[in-house]
């Protein structure tokens, strides 16, 4: 791989972003690629704004430049808008269909956010990863895995670079026992959902 492929993983502290970044990093290792996974977060344990910079390519420096991200995976809609300028023209944004407002704040509605995002030259996918996780595991705790599977399904470039099997293998290094089995199955299901959506979109063009 000559150029560096940049993925910004964004959301709110506590949504499993660091784990998600690590899984992509491990998958890159299995795909025989070099990678840097840089975690940028502030002083809070939970509830702060977080971006994990994943850069796949030879000896990457740690941080994605503004306009350098090929793909943004967001676990939260307000954060998707906050970090959107990292996305390059024509890049892909996959966002969880979920708003987690900061305390005491006034914020835009879901429809306002989606409408604003649609005004940009990006490939936008909104996916309810919380729902996908809850339906299958009983809680939102695996929303990070659901959105990763879905993203692999809709983003052909990421699928080509990593491959779903390498991601599944990476899960084995992070989870064990029943949690591992559940996450592997959730990854596969949400991937299929993504593939279907992508096919439908291609068909309608």
């Amino acid at each position: 791989m000559n150029r560096i492929y940049n993925i910004g993983v964004i959301g709110v502290g506590g949504q499993g972003l660091l784990t998600l970044g690590r899984i992509i990093g491990l998958a890159a290792i299995h795909a025989g690629l070099d990678v840097a996974v840089a975690e940028v977060h502030g002083m809070s344990q939970r509830g702060g704004s977080v971006i994990v910079n994943v850069r796949i390519g030879e000896e990457p420096s740690p941080l994605i430049p503004v306009g350098g991200a090929d793909l943004l995976i967001s676990l939260e809609l307000l954060e998707a808008v906050r970090y959107i300028q990292y996305l390059r023209r024509g890049g892909v944004l996959v966002s969880n269909d979920f708003i987690w407002p900061p305390p005491l704040a006034r914020y835009p509605s879901r429809d306002e956010i989606v409408k604003s995002l649609k005004s940009k030259e990006i490939n936008l996918y909104i996916y309810d990863a919380n729902k996908a996780s809850t339906e299958f595991t009983g809680s939102t705790v695996s929303a990070n895995i659901a959105i990763l599977g879905f993203t692999m399904g809709v983003d052909e470039e990421l699928e080509e670079i990593l491959g779903l099997e390498k991601v599944a293998k990476a899960l084995e290094e992070v989870f064990k026992g029943r949690v591992l089995e559940v996450n592997k199955e959730l990854l596969r299901r949400s991937y299929i959902e993504g593939v279907k959506i992508a096919e439908k979109r291609r068909g309608s063009r």
Binding site: G47, V81, G91, A105, P108, S116
Partner: peptide, 16 residues
Amino acid sequence: SIGVVETPTPIPPRPP
């Protein structure tokens, strides 16, 4: 960059 996205109500800051 694709630039910033403006929303009718601005995105609130998210301090820790």
